[in-house]
């Protein structure tokens, strides 16, 4: 990301000249107060938004120059996890995960194999037929993570994935994201959860008023004095 500025209508500056480089296989926490620009930064990565100024390169491709059709194909290489899970309530756990492959018209056999593997990975194979409403919050987030990784993405972008979860459940989710990262997937996660950041000691990028104010390897949530 080079010199990225994002201004929303009404002259709301979300990002102001952000430079950020993330290596393949990195695990990066984006921290900062609400309104610091964390979510905007994440949305630029999966092309949920385009910058007003500057360039965003993902896997060597300039995502701003992607044509509409290319954006869809590009997003298949990025898994996105949200605080509110974004599951389809009337579909079972299995169907929710399979949905990500169905919409890109993957063959049935491949869908069955990949969905089973993803549910195994998040430890929810036994709840494949349950509806999201029948699951606890942590389990729902696991389903969302399974959906994000089912297509073997290069990057998982997680926006406050533990925001609605208690500390124990959050720890489980973080262990899962850590596992995914260990398999070579880059994980970029925005969070407010100090406990998690301090415990994991991964790279920390702190944002304030749309600018990167700290970038530390094995950092803590707050700047160490």
């Amino acid at each position: 990301m080079y010199g990225v500025t994002k201004v929303y209508p009404g002259d709301v500056v979300a990002l102001a000249g952000v430079d950020l480089s993330v290596e393949k296989g990195d695990f990066v926490f984006i921290v900062g107060q609400s309104g610091a620009g964390k979510s905007t930064l994440l949305s630029l990565i999966y092309r949920g938004a385009t910058p007003t100024k500057g360039q965003v390169l993902v896997g060597g491709r300039n995502v701003i120059r992607l044509k509409r059709r290319e954006v869809a194909v590009f997003r298949r290489k990025i898994g996105v996890v949200y605080q509110d899970f974004k599951l389809l309530p009337e579909r079972s756990v299995y169907e929710n995960v399979a949905f990500a492959l169905e919409v890109i018209e993957a063959p049935q056999k491949e869908i069955a194999r990949k969905v089973s593997a993803a549910l195994d990975m998040v430890g929810l194979s036994h709840k494949a037929n349950s509806l999201p409403g029948q699951l606890a919050g942590g389990e729902q987030q696991r389903v969302a993570i399974a959906r994000a990784i089912v297509n073997d993405p290069l990057i998982v972008v997680a926006d406050e994935p533990t925001g609605n979860l208690d500390p124990d459940t959050s720890a489980g989710i973080m262990a899962l994201l850590s596992d995914i990262n260990c398999r070579g997937t880059t994980v970029i996660m925005a969070t407010h959860n100090q406990l998690i950041v301090d415990r994991m000691r991964k790279r920390v990028v702190e944002m304030e008023n749309g600018r990167v104010v700290r970038d530390e390897r094995q950092g803590m949530y707050c700047h160490e004095v």
């Binding site: 999966y46 059709r69 869809a72 194909v73 590009f74 919409v103």
Partner: peptide
């Protein structure tokens, strides 16, 4: 969600 997981416009 379709858009997030990369469904094409036609789909």
């Amino acid at each position: 969600i379709m858009r997030l997981v990369g469904a094409s416009d036609v789909f």
